[in-house]
């Protein structure tokens, strides 16, 4: 009796928790974005057209997308190196290196923004060091420019990309490479012709994951943005400064839609790539 009850009730109970925590708020978000005022009002699409008509939010959306794309691509390419080392090689201090690399995992965006300002701000450590070495304070104020934002976002993605690629590399069958080796393939040929084709789905999945994380993060720009605005920061300002919830909700829905599209595309591609072969 008890067992039957547990078996029948537990699924719906979990569903109820998720509906309360996630589904209902998301429905309210979409409905809020389609209304005029903070508390209801007539149905309208004005909030969405406003995003594309207002120059600042349009630019922010554009920046958000291409910065996230760029950082995700860089993270996938660069972090493949450490991931490869961790899976395929042994070297002294491997555990410590891995621990240090996963350190930024629980740093929030604001903390990374602060670190970025310390290192690359107007009187940051790097400019000071440069001045001491060369006499000119190179990189002074980089934190507040595009370069600083890119570096900070990349910092954010290092552990995520590395861990995700690591788990993919662990699943590769080393025997395929041995076979290629025995057929006379060099290291580079083995990598491009044997490893990469197997790795494509994982690279795409990692790309989508890092893209989504970058897209939603606003702590970094909250600290360092002077000339740059990204869409999450616009959402934040619409609420804190103007108390315009419908517009903020519409921007959030746009962010959600892009993130969902990215992860669905990645999953579809992964599915296709793994099942075609």
């Amino acid at each position: 009796m008890l067992k039957r009850f547990a078996a029948i009730a537990s699924g719906p109970l979990l569903l109820a928790v998720l509906v309360v925590l996630l589904v209902w708020p998301l429905i309210c978000l979409v409905s809020g974005s389609l209304h005029e005022g903070n508390s209801g009002g007539a149905w309208t699409l004005d909030n969405y057209t406003a995003i594309f008509q207002t120059r600042s939010s349009r630019v922010a959306l554009f920046h958000s997308i291409w910065i996230s794309l760029g950082v995700a691509a860089a993270a996938v390419v660069i972090c493949l190196g450490p991931a490869w080392l961790f899976v395929r090689h042994d070297f002294p201090g491997k555990r410590i290196a891995r621990a240090v690399l996963t350190l930024p995992m629980s740093f929030s965006g604001i903390l990374i923004g602060f670190l970025c300002v310390i290192m690359l701000g107007r009187i940051g450590v790097v400019p000071r060091l440069m001045e001491w070495l060369t006499g000119t304070d190179y990189f002074s104020g980089t934190a507040y420019q595009l370069g600083g934002i890119l570096i900070a976002y990349f910092y954010f993605e290092i552990p995520r990309a590395t861990l995700s690629l690591e788990s993919a590399l662990r699943k590769l069958d080393p025997r395929l490479e041995l076979a290629a080796c025995s057929l006379g393939a060099g290291a580079w040929q083995r990598f491009t012709l044997v490893v990469l084709p197997q790795l494509w789905p994982a690279l795409l999945a990692t790309f989508a994951l890092t893209f989504c994380v970058s897209l939603g993060s606003f702590g970094v720009v909250l600290i360092v943005a002077k000339r740059f605005s990204l869409l999450p920061l616009e959402v934040f300002e619409q609420i804190i400064a103007f108390n315009r919830y419908p517009l903020a909700a519409a921007m959030s829905v746009v962010l959600l839609a892009i993130a969902l599209c990215a992860s669905l595309t990645a999953r579809w591609a992964t599915h296709r790539l793994t099942h075609v072969r």
């Binding site: 939603g216 606003f218 959402v235 919830y245 959030s252 829905v253 992860s263």
Partner: peptide, 11 residues
């Protein structure tokens, strides 16, 4: 996979 700020506004 969802942006935190969107979730908080939804809540």
């Amino acid at each position: 996979a969802l942006p935190g700020i969107a979730i908080s506004i939804a809540l």
